[in-house]
Simulated scan of single mutants.
Amino acid sequence: MPELSLVAWGLLAIGAVIIGVSKTALPGASILSIALLATVLPARTSTAAMLLLLIVGDVFALIAYRRHAHWPTLVRLAPAVVAGLLAGFAFLALGNDTVVRRGIAVILLAMIALTLWRRRHPVSENTVRTGWLTAAGYGSLGGFTTMVANAGGPVMSMYFLATRAPIKVFLGTAAWFFAIVNLMKVPFLAGIGLFTPSVLIMDAVLAPGVVIGALIGLAVASRINQQLFDRIVIVLTVVGSLYLLI
């Protein structure tokens, strides 16, 4: 078992629960989990540990929305996403924990800025097109950010919003996208030795938290004050990201 303090385990448990909630009720909330795990664990270890927890959450997202995916959108994204994944893998393989830690912080802050910008400038049919060039830009950036920090959610949400899909199609497409991409990332991270016995044991302990979070998300999805929760997530993530930069 990894030697961590009770406070550290508590933060990891909170991160696991948030991952579950983000998969079934609050897309984007997992960005807070990224900051929590990267604060408690070495940067590269946190990326590997969170990936396995995200895959647990993906199961619940697929159960809920698996029949609503728009597969032409996923096919259009595939080449660019693969290129982004390879670039992110090179960054992880060549960078040490300090470089990756700060890289995660920069990515998180950039994702927060992107999220805030998106809210001030809602996507419309006239401002964003979803052709191959746009797919290449969003797909490559999404692939890179998800490989390095599991933080591709805000980028891909912008693209999926631009498709003007109904809400269930949006959620179904996103569910399949992240389920497939997260599974693709496993052999890459395993190849550079990030799935150590300690990581596997830790994730086995934390996995029930993801399940609990997913069930909570399904139960309270329609009752949460989205605006207040989003503000809390943004503030805490900015604080955590600044801490990672120190």
Rank of each mutant, 00 (worst) to 15 (best):
V75K: 14
G103Q: 04
F60H: 13
L108H: 00
T115Y: 09
N96D: 15
V106S: 00
S222H: 15
L194Y: 06
V211T: 15
A87M: 13
D58G: 03
A80L: 11
A29H: 01
T73Y: 01
G191T: 01
G209C: 11
V155E: 05
I167M: 15
I216R: 04
S241G: 14
G103S: 06
R223S: 13
V100P: 01
R76H: 09
T98F: 03
V7R: 14
K168A: 14
F160P: 01
F91W: 05
A105R: 09
V75R: 15
I63C: 08
R102Q: 13
L37N: 03
L183C: 08
I31V: 06
Y65R: 08
T98M: 04
L236E: 08
T173E: 03
I34D: 04
L206G: 09
M158L: 15
R223G: 05
A214H: 12
H68K: 07
W132Y: 06
T39F: 09
L32D: 00
L108T: 00
A105D: 02
T73S: 12
V123A: 11
T146V: 02
L200H: 01
L62N: 09
A110G: 05
I19V: 09
H121V: 10
S241Q: 05
A83L: 12
S140V: 15
V181K: 02
Q226N: 08
S33L: 02
A221V: 09
L52W: 14
A61W: 08
V75I: 11
L92H: 03
P27L: 06
A190R: 10
R76A: 12
L53H: 09
I112M: 07
R76S: 09
I19F: 06
F160V: 11
T237L: 02
A8W: 02
A61L: 09
M156H: 03
A113G: 08
I104R: 02
L85K: 07
T45E: 13
G213N: 01
W9K: 11
Q227L: 12
A8T: 05
A48C: 09
A105G: 14
F188K: 01
V211N: 11
A162H: 10
I104H: 03
F195S: 10
V7M: 15
I216L: 15
A90C: 03
I167E: 14
R164K: 11
A69M: 08
I246Q: 05
T127K: 09
G139K: 00
A221D: 12
T45M: 13
G84A: 04
I246N: 08
A83W: 00
A165V: 02
P79Q: 02
Y65T: 05
G131E: 13
A16N: 04
T196N: 13
V17F: 10
I34R: 02
I104Y: 03
T127R: 11
F60Q: 12
P2S: 13
V235D: 03
A113H: 05
W132S: 10
L77K: 01
L242W: 03
S46Y: 08
